[in-house]
């Protein structure tokens, strides 16, 4: 199976499911019309159901929890039911083997019915027993990933109102704050000594990132650093459109400066391994490393008018 391209998984999954359906429909049609092999309706329905179960269980990474897959399977079952009952002919064909087993008129159907009558209650009570056992799995704890920020943060004795503060290092050639300076320079070489002030700030931010942050957030800022595996959940993936791209630069400034201990209760401050970076970096260094993170991921910071 091919791997998933980062950021493209939903599209990839939809395309694959579509492909599977097309193969299935075409395959059944060719078998029926060209080769004269008719797959019984009940078997077709069972195949679709099992294929759906298999796909959701083994294809999707990280794995879906059982409860989510159960919902999908119920929807697949409803879909199958609508499909087989849409035409009288198909419906009769679908029912026939089931009714034959219930009536048990031949030795084969008699045996199938006998086995089912015994196996069904036994497996149901067995499954019930298994499910009722204390699970002893990981406790499920749902934290708020981007909790509401405070109105202002005080870093190194200076107060920064989050609504009005601007990054002092996101500057154009004239030294003024510029919202668009990044767009023109995402492909620049940060190690070019003749580069503009903005790119020099990016480079200095990169130096800080690769001396402090990549251990957890990774060399590609994708949350897969050297130490990431030890933490739960693993560190934030900045290449994901749900993190940096969704946030104002000042929000990120608050998160970096105050770290895990600065989170409100719903953000689980006790469990975050994010250091309060004001203990290690100057205010300007914090702004620079944020500048670098936006530059490297190519996402523009979200602005208030958006």
């Amino acid at each position: 199976m091919p791997g998933f391209i980062e950021g493209m998984m939903p599209v990839q999954l939809l395309a694959e499911i579509l492909l599977i359906i097309v193969i299935f429909v075409l395959g059944a049609m060719i078998l029926d019309k060209k080769m004269g092999i008719r797959i019984p309706m009940l078997l077709q329905a069972a195949l679709v159901f099992i294929a759906g179960w298999w796909y959701y269980k083994f294809r999707i990474e990280p794995p879906l929890p059982f409860s989510v897959r159960a919902i999908y399977q119920v929807m697949i079952a409803i879909g199958i039911f609508m499909w087989v009952s849409s035409a009288e002919k198909g419906w009769t064909e679908f029912k026939r083997p089931i009714l034959a087993v219930l009536d048990a008129k031949t030795p084969l159907t008699w045996w199938v019915r006998a086995v089912l009558l015994v196996v069904l209650p036994l497996s149901a009570s067995g499954m019930a027993y298994k499910n009722l056992l204390p699970s002893l799995g990981e406790p499920i704890e749902l934290r708020t990933v981007h909790p509401a920020p405070p109105a202002a943060v005080t870093v190194h004795g200076k107060k920064f109102p989050l609504q009005t503060s601007e990054s002092p290092v996101r500057v154009d050639e004239s030294g003024e704050y510029s919202n668009h300076i990044q767009d023109a320079h995402v492909m620049d070489n940060p190690f070019d000594p003749d580069s503009i002030q903005y790119m020099q700030n990016v480079k200095e931010g990169g130096d800080i990132f690769f001396q402090n942050c990549h251990f957890c957030h990774g060399d590609n800022l994708n949350g897969r650093g050297l130490y990431a595996y030890a933490f739960n959940p693993i560190p934030a993936n900045f290449t994901d459109p749900g993190t940096l791209a969704q946030l104002q630069e000042t929000f990120v400034f608050w998160r970096v400066a105050k770290g895990g201990p600065g989170l409100p209760r719903e953000g689980f401050p006790w469990a975050s391994a994010m250091p309060p970076w004001e203990q290690h970096l100057t205010t300007e260094e914090i702004w620079k490393v944020i500048l670098f993170e936006y530059w490297h991921t190519k996402y523009p910071p979200r602005t208030w008018d958006e």
């Binding site: 069904l120 209650p121 149901a124 009570s125 067995g126 019930a128 027993y129 009722l132």
Partner: peptide
């Protein structure tokens, strides 16, 4: 109680 629930469910299916 876990065993009892399981038995009840089996009887229900029968």
């Amino acid at each position: 109680s876990v065993a009892w629930y399981a038995i009840f469910i089996g009887i229900g299916i029968v």
